[in-house]
């Protein structure tokens, strides 16, 4: 479960956090990321699904280690990482309830991954091998076989020279994938500290 969560949120985090370093890896001028905010639409494709499941949400990151990853629909949930603590909340009957288990404790590891990446290059990710391709595409493949059984690869697509990511696609199997498409991205704006403290 720990590796699952790592993959999931690393992928999600990379969507916003990696552009600066991704551009660096691609030979473009790097942008120092202090904060990132964006909206996202997530498409979940499975062979058994006649049409994908669509989720929508927002993402906020503040360097060095604060994160708010919020799904607004179909299930309103908030993942908060702040001051080394990771918490997950689910809205039930109009109120947020903190959920334990399901790898929530392990999410602290994710934060380490993300922040570690911010301080280095994309090729230095301890978990993934990165390959920069033409057209602003970066393909990440897991270094460990245990992880490869869960996730075969991640594709990151850069949004031109804006310093933001256009999309992240996480492949679990040949026809099973999760695609995150980002919009309304804003870099390096001041974010209130309370954003990362409560749902």
């Amino acid at each position: 479960m720990r590796s699952l969560i790592v993959v999931l949120f690393l992928a999600a985090g990379l969507g916003f956090l990696s552009p600066a370093r991704a551009q660096d890896a691609a030979g473009l001028s790097p942008v120092r990321v202090e904060s990132v905010q964006a909206e996202f639409t997530q498409e979940k494709h499975l062979p058994i699904l006649a049409r994908p499941i669509i989720s929508k949400g927002t993402f906020v990151f503040q360097a060095p280690a604060s994160l708010r990853w919020e799904y607004l629909s179909p299930v309103h949930s908030v993942l908060l990482m702040d001051d080394g603590r990771t918490r997950k909340f689910i809205q039930r009957n109009g109120q947020f309830v903190e959920e334990q288990g399901m790898g929530v404790d392990s999410m602290a590891i994710v934060l380490q991954e993300i922040t570690g990446w911010l301080d280095g290059h994309i090729s230095d990710t301890p978990t993934f091998k990165a390959k920069v391709q033409e057209g602003g595409l970066i393909v990440l493949t897991p270094k460990e076989s245990a992880l490869a059984r869960i996730i075969s690869r991640i594709e990151l697509r850069l949004a031109g020279k804006s310093g933001l990511m256009e999309s992240v696609t996480l492949y679990e199997g040949p026809d099973s994938l999760t695609k995150l498409i980002f919009s309304h991205g804003v870099l390096n704006e001041k974010i209130p500290a309370a954003t990362f403290m409560k749902p």
Binding site: L4, F9, A12, L46, L49, Y71, S77, Q100, M102
Partner: peptide, 29 residues
Amino acid sequence: GGGATVIGVTVLDGQKLHCALMTVEGLVL
């Protein structure tokens, strides 16, 4: 008192029944 929230997919397809559970974030469990 323990528990969790997941997303469940159920497909009824003639004589077959498919089901999947995934995290709210979309990872298939």
